[in-house]
């Protein structure tokens, strides 16, 4: 799979629906650019500027809780 595929230059907008996030850490662990962190048992967007919009966090989130625009 083409992980970390290059995307458009426009900065990413990462949204987290905290009430749906169950804190599994899958998005955090497998983000190729280390954009995400855990905070209080849920995901937190820590370095949005590093995001390449590879979409893997969104694709792998089991809880429909994170989106990348």
């Amino acid at each position: 799979m083409a992980e970390g595929a290059p995307a458009s230059k426009k900065p990413a907008i990462i949204r987290v629906k905290l009430e749906w996030c169950k804190g599994c850490e899958i998005c955090v662990t497998f983000c190729p650019k280390n954009v995400l962190e855990m905070e209080g048992g849920k995901v937190k967007v820590a370095r949005v500027e590093d995001c390449t919009k590879c979409m893997l966090c969104e694709l792998r989130c089991p809880d429909f809780a994170i989106t990348v625009e």
């Binding site: 009430e19 749906w20 169950k22 804190g23 599994c24 850490e25 899958i26 694709l59 792998r60 989130c61 089991p62 809880d63 429909f64």
Partner: peptide
Amino acid sequence: IREWNFPHIWCSGCGDGIVLK
């Protein structure tokens, strides 16, 4: 999706939500 049924019943980290998507 039937949004009113969310969050779904699956455990944290369960792949079933990934399949659904």
